[in-house]
């Protein structure tokens, strides 16, 4: 019996892995053919407008553009498998190197935003569920609806206007004051961590002043959706019989809520939070543009404005991979942490 389960488990794992691979392959195919239909002359971008016909032709052939499309696709795939994702027009570096360089800034921003969003959204959601249809619930409903309705770039601008230029409570654009830039040795790429590792509190506090506003703005949208989800999960649980049973035992309302009902949504919530982490990338595109945050979002936007299809496609592919990975992670979390999956 035990062996049967094990084999079944391996089979299921293989199936989900295969389905991920298919999705990735589709993704690569999609990005390739999207690149094909782009009305951009890659060659002239590379060689410059003044290049002569021979140079143009040579580059054209070097890129394999004279081959039939299916051969080009093969080249594209094999290059990718070798880790060669092409050069970015914007920087002249390998796209992958660029991304590795800018990504920590986004991770730092996204992580803090998630902490803020979940740290506020989840307790608010619990409160709304407990106070269902009472004034507190209605207020929270309006606050979260606003979070779904407010343009994130506008909140960012308003935040800058109020907290930076009028009140001077926070730093402006960028990750630190300009004169601190590059002072701290890059180890993790997370400036808050690096500055602490270097023992440079001045840079650390400057970095805090700079990250707090964009992270809060970015966190607000995720706060809204986490709050609404938490509320509906909790309402579900609070109507269950085991909650009544806990009350029969004389358990205090606080423990009924947190030790019984909330404990039942923890895993569900964790998976949702994992997925929310991925959607931070979306907000980062707009937020990083406003706050001059040198991260992935800004890199993508700059490439979009430049029309560098190759770089864009690599970015998109990466986002896809991150999303799929997070999805799998969420699945895994469920299997590990939910006692109901214990045999």
């Amino acid at each position: 019996m035990g062996r049967f389960f094990k084999r079944n488990k391996i089979k299921r794992a293989a199936q989900s892995l295969a389905s991920v691979l298919v999705t990735l392959l589709l993704l690569v195919t999609l990005t390739f053919f999207l690149g094909q239909v782009m009305p951009v002359d890659v060659v002239s971008r590379l060689v410059g407008p003044d290049a002569d016909q021979a140079t143009y032709q040579a580059t054209y052939e070097r890129l394999g553009l004279d081959q039939p499309i299916i051969v080009q696709f093969g080249i594209y795939i094999s290059r990718m498998l070798q880790g060669d994702f092409g050069t970015a027009l914007l920087t002249g570096h390998q796209v992958l190197d660029d991304i590795v360089r800018v990504f920590p800034a986004t991770i730092e921003l996204g992580t803090l935003a998630l902490l803020i969003g979940a740290g506020i959204g989840v307790p608010l959601g619990v409160l709304a569920a407990v106070q269902r249809n009472r004034p507190a619930d209605h207020i929270i409903r309006v606050v979260t609806l606003l979070g779904h309705s407010v343009p994130i770039f506008w909140i960012g601008l308003m935040g800058l206007l109020l907290f930076y230029s009028y009140l001077g409570w926070v730093g402006g654009g960028g990750r630190v004051e300009i004169y601190y830039d590059g002072l701290v040795e890059t180890r993790t790429g997370l400036l808050l961590v690096d500055s602490l590792l270097a023992g440079d509190t001045e840079v650390f506090w400057s970095a805090v002043r700079h990250i707090i506003l964009p992270a809060t703005v970015l966190g607000y949208a995720s706060m809204a959706s986490l709050c609404r989800l938490t509320r509906s999960f909790m309402i579900d649980q609070l109507s269950q019989e085991y909650v009544t049973a806990a009350r029969v035992k004389g358990v205090s309302e606080w423990n009924v809520i947190w030790h019984h009902a909330f404990r039942n949504i923890r895993v569900q919530l964790l998976t949702v939070i994992a997925l929310t982490y991925g959607s931070m990338l979306e907000g980062a595109v707009l937020i990083e543009t406003i706050f001059a945050w040198p991260g992935f979002g800004q890199y993508l936007t700059n490439n979009l404005l430049l029309g560098d299809m190759n770089a864009i496609m690599v970015c998109v592919l990466l986002v896809g991979v991150i999303f799929i990975t997070l999805n799998m992670l969420a699945d895994l979390l469920y299997k590990i942490f939910d006692p109901r999956t214990v045999q």
């Binding site: 993704l27 999207l34 991925g278 979306e282 595109v285 707009l286 979009l304 998109v316 986002v319 799929i324």
Partner: peptide, 10 residues
Amino acid sequence: AFPGLILTLT
């Protein structure tokens, strides 16, 4: 599998 805005941007 993508956040909506990223796909739209593409």
